[in-house]
Amino acid sequence: MKVLAATLVLLAASPALAAGPAPAWSVDKPASKIAFASSFGGTAFSGSFRTWDAQVRFDPNNLPGSSVVVTIDTAAVSTGDPDRDKTLPDTPWFASAKYPKAVFRTQSFRALGGGRYQAIGTLTLRGVTKPLTLPFTLAITGPNAKMTAQMGLNRLAFGVGQGEWAKTNVIPSTVNLTISLTAHRAK
């Protein structure tokens, strides 16, 4: 009887444990984009990743049961400049042959109100794992969701841009990320 009472108290104190994992969402990749922007010698450029995957479980009423894992193919970069697209996967930049994937994995979420949240987790890029808090907005309408996020990321913290490219006089240390995801609740 004491074990049953202790179990009930534990379940009552841990809603996520009682509720289980949040529902899964299927990302509509043609309607979604993971993009970045920077500059080279003062000239702005932008790009995106053509190949990536996102495993999303999210419920604003069950943040402890929510999780996201995003895996990006670092060799699948597209900036509209063939020379830059060929160079970015090389050793001074993403070193895609050795580190083919960048992975963002959440550990928790924080609600900020008004459809604003923070995804708290880690980013592994070029073999370096660092804590990362991603602020995002989310609008859920029935079975559909639209998420947007923008933040600056210090490329040098992950070793992106080695040797002469570690200097910030030609390419700034901060790369601006823009994420736009459209998803549908999985059935």
Results as ranks from 00 to 15, higher is better:
21 P>T: 08
21 P>K: 06
22 A>Y: 00
22 A>N: 03
22 A>W: 00
23 P>T: 07
23 P>K: 05
24 A>C: 04
24 A>L: 10
26 S>L: 14
26 S>R: 13
26 S>D: 15
26 S>I: 14
27 V>W: 00
28 D>E: 15
28 D>W: 05
29 K>Q: 14
29 K>I: 08
30 P>G: 08
30 P>Q: 04
31 A>C: 11
31 A>S: 15
32 S>C: 13
32 S>I: 10
33 K>E: 11
33 K>H: 08
35 A>K: 02
35 A>L: 09
36 F>Y: 08
37 A>P: 00
37 A>G: 12
37 A>M: 03
38 S>E: 02
38 S>W: 00
38 S>G: 13
38 S>A: 14
39 S>I: 09
39 S>G: 05
39 S>L: 02
39 S>M: 10
39 S>Q: 15
40 F>S: 12
41 G>N: 14
41 G>P: 06
42 G>D: 12
42 G>I: 13
42 G>S: 07
42 G>C: 10
44 A>M: 07
45 F>P: 00
46 S>M: 07
47 G>V: 06
47 G>T: 10
48 S>A: 10
48 S>Q: 09
48 S>N: 10
48 S>Y: 06
49 F>Y: 12
51 T>Y: 00
51 T>L: 07
51 T>D: 13
52 W>K: 02
52 W>H: 05
53 D>A: 11
53 D>T: 13
54 A>Y: 00
54 A>D: 02
55 Q>G: 15
55 Q>A: 15
56 V>H: 01
56 V>G: 01
57 R>L: 09
59 D>Q: 01
59 D>V: 07
59 D>L: 01
60 P>M: 04
61 N>F: 06
61 N>V: 05
61 N>A: 14
61 N>P: 00
63 L>Q: 05
63 L>W: 04
64 P>S: 09
64 P>T: 12
65 G>D: 07
66 S>W: 00
66 S>L: 01
66 S>N: 02
67 S>G: 10
67 S>V: 03
67 S>P: 02
67 S>Y: 07
67 S>T: 12
69 V>K: 11
69 V>T: 15
70 V>W: 00
71 T>F: 04
71 T>P: 01
71 T>G: 04
71 T>C: 04
72 I>E: 05
72 I>W: 04
72 I>Q: 06
73 D>W: 05
74 T>M: 14
75 A>F: 06
75 A>M: 13
75 A>Y: 12
76 A>N: 08
76 A>I: 07
76 A>V: 09
77 V>Y: 02
77 V>P: 01
78 S>D: 13
79 T>I: 10
79 T>A: 10
80 G>C: 06
80 G>P: 11
80 G>D: 09
81 D>G: 02
81 D>K: 06
82 P>M: 03
82 P>W: 03
82 P>R: 05
83 D>H: 08
84 R>V: 11
84 R>N: 11
84 R>Y: 02
85 D>Q: 14
86 K>R: 15
86 K>S: 15
87 T>W: 04
89 P>K: 13
89 P>M: 14
90 D>Y: 10
91 T>P: 02
91 T>H: 08
